[in-house]
Simulated scan of single mutants.
Amino acid sequence: MWKFFAVMIALLAAPVFASASYTKISEKTEFLKVVQGKTLTRPLIKLEVSSAGNISGRGASWNVNGKWTWQNGYFCRNLNWGGTELGYNCQEVGLSNGRLRFTSDEGRGNSAEFRLR
Protein backbone atom coordinates (compact mmCIF):
# COMPACT_ATOMS: atom_id res chain seq x y z
CA MET A 1 0.00 0.00 0.00
CA TRP A 2 2.79 2.44 0.88
CA LYS A 3 4.48 1.78 -2.45
CA PHE A 4 1.29 2.75 -4.26
CA PHE A 5 1.00 5.85 -2.07
CA ALA A 6 4.59 6.82 -2.90
CA VAL A 7 3.89 6.43 -6.62
CA MET A 8 0.83 8.66 -6.33
CA ILE A 9 2.81 11.37 -4.53
CA ALA A 10 5.34 11.19 -7.34
CA LEU A 11 2.54 11.64 -9.88
CA LEU A 12 1.27 14.71 -8.03
CA ALA A 13 4.75 16.25 -8.11
CA ALA A 14 6.11 14.70 -11.30
CA PRO A 15 8.26 17.02 -13.39
CA VAL A 16 7.04 18.08 -16.78
CA PHE A 17 9.34 17.48 -19.72
CA ALA A 18 7.53 19.45 -22.37
CA SER A 19 8.89 21.93 -24.82
CA ALA A 20 5.74 24.06 -24.82
CA SER A 21 6.14 27.74 -24.10
CA TYR A 22 4.21 28.84 -21.02
CA THR A 23 3.02 32.32 -20.20
CA LYS A 24 3.38 33.08 -16.51
CA ILE A 25 0.18 33.98 -14.69
CA SER A 26 1.07 36.59 -12.12
CA GLU A 27 -2.32 37.98 -11.08
CA LYS A 28 -5.05 36.26 -9.06
CA THR A 29 -7.79 37.66 -11.34
CA GLU A 30 -6.04 36.23 -14.39
CA PHE A 31 -5.71 32.82 -12.68
CA LEU A 32 -9.38 32.79 -11.68
CA LYS A 33 -10.48 33.55 -15.25
CA VAL A 34 -8.54 30.50 -16.42
CA VAL A 35 -9.77 28.01 -13.79
CA GLN A 36 -13.36 29.20 -13.29
CA GLY A 37 -15.76 26.37 -14.13
CA LYS A 38 -12.90 24.05 -15.14
CA THR A 39 -11.53 20.78 -13.82
CA LEU A 40 -7.76 20.39 -13.70
CA THR A 41 -6.86 16.90 -14.88
CA ARG A 42 -3.85 14.66 -15.31
CA PRO A 43 -3.69 10.86 -15.21
CA LEU A 44 -5.57 9.61 -12.14
CA ILE A 45 -6.07 13.16 -10.80
CA LYS A 46 -9.04 15.55 -11.10
CA LEU A 47 -9.11 18.79 -9.12
CA GLU A 48 -11.28 21.86 -8.87
CA VAL A 49 -9.99 25.20 -7.62
CA SER A 50 -12.69 27.59 -6.39
CA SER A 51 -12.63 31.37 -6.29
CA ALA A 52 -13.38 31.05 -2.55
CA GLY A 53 -9.94 29.52 -1.95
CA ASN A 54 -10.84 25.83 -1.84
CA ILE A 55 -9.26 22.88 -3.63
CA SER A 56 -11.17 19.62 -3.98
CA GLY A 57 -11.03 16.48 -6.04
CA ARG A 58 -9.57 13.00 -6.29
CA GLY A 59 -6.06 11.67 -6.68
CA ALA A 60 -6.21 7.97 -7.59
CA SER A 61 -8.82 6.64 -5.19
CA TRP A 62 -8.30 9.22 -2.42
CA ASN A 63 -9.93 12.55 -1.78
CA VAL A 64 -7.84 15.66 -2.19
CA ASN A 65 -8.81 18.87 -0.42
CA GLY A 66 -7.09 22.02 0.60
CA LYS A 67 -6.97 25.78 0.65
CA TRP A 68 -5.19 28.27 -1.57
CA THR A 69 -4.34 31.96 -1.65
CA TRP A 70 -2.53 34.20 -4.13
CA GLN A 71 0.60 35.83 -2.69
CA ASN A 72 3.20 37.96 -4.47
CA GLY A 73 2.38 36.47 -7.88
CA TYR A 74 2.26 32.83 -6.73
CA PHE A 75 -0.44 30.22 -6.13
CA CYS A 76 0.10 29.18 -2.50
CA ARG A 77 -1.65 26.05 -1.35
CA ASN A 78 -1.93 23.59 1.49
CA LEU A 79 -3.20 20.12 0.48
CA ASN A 80 -4.47 17.01 2.20
CA TRP A 81 -4.47 13.87 0.11
CA GLY A 82 -6.19 10.80 1.50
CA GLY A 83 -5.62 11.99 5.07
CA THR A 84 -1.96 12.90 4.53
CA GLU A 85 -0.91 16.54 4.70
CA LEU A 86 1.21 17.42 1.66
CA GLY A 87 2.17 20.76 3.14
CA TYR A 88 2.20 24.40 2.17
CA ASN A 89 3.93 25.52 -1.02
CA CYS A 90 3.87 28.62 -3.23
CA GLN A 91 3.95 27.77 -6.92
CA GLU A 92 4.53 29.59 -10.17
CA VAL A 93 1.64 29.08 -12.60
CA GLY A 94 2.04 29.02 -16.38
CA LEU A 95 -0.54 28.69 -19.17
CA SER A 96 -0.10 27.14 -22.61
CA ASN A 97 -2.70 25.75 -25.03
CA GLY A 98 -5.32 24.83 -22.44
CA ARG A 99 -2.81 23.50 -19.94
CA LEU A 100 -1.67 24.86 -16.60
CA ARG A 101 1.78 24.16 -15.25
CA PHE A 102 2.40 24.52 -11.52
CA THR A 103 6.07 24.75 -10.53
CA SER A 104 6.77 24.33 -6.82
CA ASP A 105 9.04 26.47 -4.67
CA GLU A 106 8.13 29.72 -6.47
CA GLY A 107 9.20 28.33 -9.82
CA ARG A 108 12.43 26.65 -8.69
CA GLY A 109 11.12 23.12 -8.01
CA ASN A 110 9.33 20.31 -9.79
CA SER A 111 6.45 20.98 -12.17
CA ALA A 112 3.10 19.32 -12.71
CA GLU A 113 0.99 19.98 -15.78
CA PHE A 114 -2.82 19.84 -15.82
CA ARG A 115 -5.28 19.95 -18.67
CA LEU A 116 -8.24 22.29 -18.28
CA ARG A 117 -11.54 20.48 -18.93
Rank of each mutant, 00 (worst) to 15 (best):
R58H: 12
D105A: 13
L32C: 07
G82N: 10
L11H: 06
S111I: 01
G107W: 10
V49D: 02
R99E: 15
A13C: 10
L79V: 05
S50G: 11
G109K: 10
R58C: 00
M8Y: 02
S26A: 08
R58W: 05
Y88I: 00
L79A: 00
W81A: 11
A18V: 12
T41I: 09
E92N: 03
A10H: 03
G59D: 13
R108Y: 03
S111F: 10
E85G: 14
G59C: 07
Q71D: 12
S19H: 12
F5I: 09
L79I: 09
P15V: 03
R42A: 15
C76V: 03
S61N: 04
M8N: 02
W81H: 03
V93Y: 08
R99Q: 15
S56T: 08
T69H: 09
N78V: 10
G98C: 12
S26N: 12
N97V: 01
C90W: 04
N65E: 13
F114Q: 10
L32Y: 12
S19T: 13
G73W: 10
W81C: 00
C90M: 03
M8C: 05
G107Y: 07
F102S: 03
L40G: 04
S104G: 10
E30P: 02
Y88W: 14
L32S: 02
I55K: 09
G57L: 10
T29Q: 12
A10S: 13
R42S: 14
N78H: 11
W81R: 00
E113G: 01
W70S: 01
S26H: 11
M8L: 06
K28R: 13
V16P: 04
K33P: 04
A13Q: 05
F17Q: 06
T69G: 06
G57I: 05
R101W: 04
G73L: 02
V7G: 11
F17L: 09
S50C: 04
F17E: 08
N78I: 04
R99C: 07
L100N: 02
E113F: 13
T69S: 14
V34H: 03
T23V: 13
N72M: 10
N78D: 08
W70R: 05
V93Q: 03
T29P: 03
T29A: 14
G73M: 08
E48M: 12
N80G: 11
E85D: 15
F5L: 13
K46R: 14
Y88D: 02
I9L: 13
A20E: 14
G109V: 07
I55Q: 05
G82S: 07
A52P: 01
G66K: 09
T84Q: 12
S50L: 02
V34W: 01
V16W: 10
R108D: 00
G87C: 02
N110V: 13
P43F: 11
Q36R: 07
A60P: 02
Q71E: 15
C90T: 03
A18W: 07
A13Y: 09
G83N: 08
K67V: 14
V64W: 05
A20Y: 07
W68D: 03
L12I: 04
L11F: 07
T69Q: 13
D105M: 11
S50Y: 04
Q91T: 02
A60Y: 15
S56D: 03
R77M: 00
L11C: 10
Y74T: 01
E106W: 14
I25E: 00
F75L: 09
C76F: 06
T39Y: 06
G107I: 04
V16E: 12
V16I: 01
F31R: 08
E48R: 15
T23G: 02
